[in-house]
Structure formats: C-alpha cells, structure tokens
C-alpha cells in the first residue's frame, strides 16, 4: 500500500503547478506534505486521487497506476479535498450513505459503517440535520468520515485540520495515528507545523512545485537533530559572556531572549546544566521551534 511518486510534473496552461515532486509514503506511517501556499500540494493530491493525469513522471499506489487503473486505485484510496463541499440539502447521514452507495457498499453494511464513522468524528448529534447547518470544522469532520467510508488503505488528506477547533485537532491527530497503527498509509498536507510535528513520522517539504527534502520526525531524530533553544535569564550580560567564552553560537532575539543552536537533546540538557553550575540565573529554557519548523523555514528561505 505504498505511495510512490517519481519526478511528477503537471502544468495548467502556462502555470507550472508541480515541477518535480518525488516522495514515498509507507504503510503504517503518517507522511506530512508541507510547503507554502501554491507549492503544488493540492495538485499533487489531485493526481494521487485519480483526478488529474501527470504530464510527466510516474505515480504508483500499491503498485497501481492511477492513470491506467483508476477504478482499482479508487477502491483503495480515501481522499479528503481542501474545502470539502457537500450536498447541502442532504442530512449528514444521507451524505455518508450516498457515498457508501457510490462505493457499492451493501445497504446494511453501509448503515453500520456510517454509524461507526459518525461516532468517530463526533457528529452523531447532527446525523439527521441538513449538512448545510454544519460549521466549517464540522464539515471537515464529515469530509474525513466520507474519506473513510470505503475503509481505504491509503488516505489522502488535504488540509484536514483547517477550521477545526483545538479539541477536534487533537482528536484528528488520534484518528490519524490510529489509522497508521492499523497499517494504513496516511498522506496529509498541512500548514500547521506544530500539529504535524506530533502526528507525522516523516515530512516531505515542497516549495515551488519541487520536493526539497524528506525529514524524519520520530524520537530518534529529535535526539540528534539540530534545534534552536531560547534562554531567558535575569543576567543577560553574564549569559552572553558565558556563551561567547564557551563558543556557543548565539544571537539576541526579542524580549531579552537569547537563542542558541544545539545539536540533539542530549547536548541541550548538558548546556542547561553547565549554565546553572556556573551561576547563570536561567528563568526559561525551551525549544524555540520544532525540528520540522526549522527544516521548513530553512527549505523555504529563498521565498523571502
């Protein structure tokens, strides 16, 4: 159930939406697709969702080509578009039953599946209300349920967290982790890096239609990757002098804070211990940005 994308390119007229994207998403993992607006994430997902033919390059989903075997691919994927539109006149339950019918799921199975999914996305209370009355976040949750109705082994989610309240986000995270734990392949595009940091196993950074790098985000990575730490101190002069003496690269940031670059958590802990031992009065010591954020900012720096 692996997603493999090799050098995919897609233009709309003279607008080059996707220049060259390559990635691999493995079963049992959540792969994040991150990049600035207009970097080609949605276009790539449309190609994966069997809606667009790539101009160049190859896509394989579970070894199947979405261009020549769209039906087989559709049976295996669940796609949640960005800004999920829905049939406003139908009730929430009817929306899911209609999609189930479109997947040729038998009516009785469709009903049990619908009830289960409504519980998963916490829309049971609204099951018999018209989809029109749903808020944006509730519509997103309905979109997730819709994408899951055929029990897909590959999930393609385009900005699933947009419009969700904090509780729904946390629940979405749990749902995605649960799906990955079932051995499904989850590819999720998002802007919200802190969210992805916690849910994704690896991140593919794209900018200007090109995939720049793939970053592992698991614990092992956190132990070794370089990250920025912010230090707040009562003794700013002492701290600056100490850091200069010990050749720690540092820079002043706003609010009297100092930011240092440290490779790995082990080193970060040792630095804090050293500071305290030498009598620097530290009041705050925290990661300034996640590893993902640093990687993202580094990769997309040329945009500025």
């Amino acid at each position: 159930m692996t997603i493999e994308v090799q050098g995919v390119r897609r233009a709309f007229g003279d607008v080059l939406a996707v220049d060259s994207i390559s990635l691999t998403a493995n079963p049992g993992e959540v792969t994040a697709l991150i990049g600035p607006n207009g970097s080609g994430k949605t276009t790539l997902l449309l190609m994966l969702a069997t809606l667009l033919v790539p101009d160049q390059g190859a896509i394989r989903i579970d070894g199947l080509d979405p261009v020549t075997q769209p039906t087989e691919v559709r049976a295996r994927i669940g796609w949640m578009p960005d800004g999920f539109g829905t049939w406003d006149a139908l009730t929430v339950r009817e929306v899911l039953l209609t999609v189930a019918a479109a997947y040729r799921i038998a009516p009785d199975r469709a009903r049990t599946r619908t009830d289960a999914l409504l519980a998963t996305v916490h829309l049971e209370d609204l099951a018999d209300r018209r989809a029109r009355v749903l808020s944006r976040g509730q519509k997103q949750r309905l979109g997730l349920a819709r994408a899951l109705i055929n029990d897909p082994s590959v999930l393609l989610l385009d900005e699933p967290a947009s419009g969700l309240d904090p509780r729904s986000r946390i629940e979405l995270r749990d749902v995605l982790r649960g799906l990955a734990a079932q051995g499904k392949t989850v590819l999720v595009s998002s802007h919200i890096l802190t969210e992805l940091q916690e849910v994704a196993d690896r991140a593919v950074i794209v900018a200007r239609g090109r995939s720049l790098e793939t970053q592992r985000l698991d614990d092992e990575h956190a132990l070794t990757a370089t990250a920025s730490w912010r230090i707040d101190s009562l003794d700013l002069e002492g701290l600056t002098a100490w850091l200069a003496d010990h050749h720690v690269p540092a820079r002043r940031v706003g609010g009297g804070l100092t930011e240092v670059e440290v490779a790995g958590e082990e080193n970060a802990a040792r630095l804090l211990a050293d500071l305290v031992r030498d009598g620097i009065r530290v009041t705050g010591y925290a990661r300034s940005q996640g590893a993902l954020e640093s990687a993202y900012l580094a990769a997309t720096e040329d945009r500025r």
Partner: peptide
C-alpha cells in the same frame, strides 16, 4: 462550483 463533483468522481462511479 460547490466542490461536490470530484467527491463522486473519486468513488467507484464511472
């Protein structure tokens, strides 16, 4: 325009 056509096209409907 309502974004509901593609959700049908990605199902098993031809």
């Amino acid at each position: 325009e309502h974004g509901v056509l593609a959700t049908l096209q990605t199902t098993l409907l031809t």
